[in-house]
């Protein structure tokens, strides 16, 4: 950080602030509590499939950056709550992921299309897998 920037408070614009509040309202989480320790990311089983680490999604949400809406991360989260038990600040990160997914899903968006599944797959897959997948990933 250059000397003229040091000591300045980071300000976010009105649009970003509004988006951040939306995520906080939908998730019920106080995302400003996060101090970027990275415990959530280190325990996440899906990081290999993610573009932004879970901790980075939280940071971006703190700043109200709408880029989170187009991230891969929110869709590959398995809602396993490993991040939730690890977070030293008591943030349920899975709730934040859900909130961001919901913002996208509520704009008439489906992440997956069950018509892509073959009859063989549908015969084999358990109910529990299909129901949860569609609840999480379709509008």
């Amino acid at each position: 950080m250059s000397s003229e920037n040091s000591g300045q408070i980071l300000k976010i614009n009105a649009e970003n602030k509004e988006f951040k509040e939306k995520i906080q309202d939908l998730s019920g989480e106080k995302i400003d509590l996060c101090f970027q320790c990275g415990a959530c990311s280190s325990g996440c089983p899906m990081v290999q499939e993610m573009d932004y680490l879970p901790s980075k999604i939280i940071r971006m949400s703190q700043l109200g950056l709408k880029e989170v809406l187009s991230s891969k991360t929110i869709w590959v989260c398995t809602t396993c709550f490993n991040c939730e038990v690890r977070c030293p600040r008591g943030i349920d990160i899975a709730n934040v992921m859900e909130a961001i997914r919901q913002v996208v899903l509520r704009q008439k968006f489906d992440k997956v299309n069950i018509d892509m599944l073959t009859p063989e797959e549908l015969r084999e897959l358990p109910q529990i897998a299909i129901v949860s997948n569609l609840r999480k990933l379709t509008a």
Binding site: P45, M46, T78, C80, V112, L117, L125, S132, N133
Partner: peptide, 12 residues
């Protein structure tokens, strides 16, 4: 206690 990937078994 590690996740098995859960419902992503459908498309991943």
């Amino acid at each position: 206690q590690k996740c098995c990937g859960s419902y992503h078994t459908v498309f991943m």
